[in-house]
């Protein structure tokens, strides 16, 4: 089902925000083909009657009391920040729109 092109890898890398190099495009395209081909057999196994399993244990309704818990101080929050200013995380200019 999958012959995955260089362009497709480039598109996926863009979606995943990874700047792949030209060399990586070639290796990944080749390797992804092999991987996805050998993974493709999963689609042959199960009929529609088989429910998908997303959780190991079928537990439901795990809730938290709506009661505040101590969190982090501003200084702790920013402790790992590459850049900060006025108690905020400083990041490069944002293009694009809020979703």
């Amino acid at each position: 089902m999958s012959t995955i092109s260089r362009d497709e890898v480039a598109h996926l890398a863009r979606l995943a925000r990874i700047d792949v190099t030209e060399a990586e495009l070639d290796t990944f395209a080749g390797q992804l083909d092999v991987i996805l081909d050998s993974m493709a057999k999963v689609s042959e196994v199960a009929g529609d009657d088989v429910p998908p399993m997303t959780h190991a244990a079928d537990v439901t309704n795990v809730f938290r009391e709506d009661v505040p818990r101590p969190g982090l101080s501003q200084q702790q929050a920013l402790s790992g920040a590459p850049a900060a200013e006025d108690g905020r995380f400083k990041v490069p200019r944002i293009l694009g729109e809020e979703q």
Partner: peptide, 12 residues
């Protein structure tokens, strides 16, 4: 404004 800004500051 978001356009033409030099950088952004984030408060979570």
């Amino acid at each position: 404004r978001i356009h033409g800004a030099d950088y952004s500051l984030l408060d979570y």
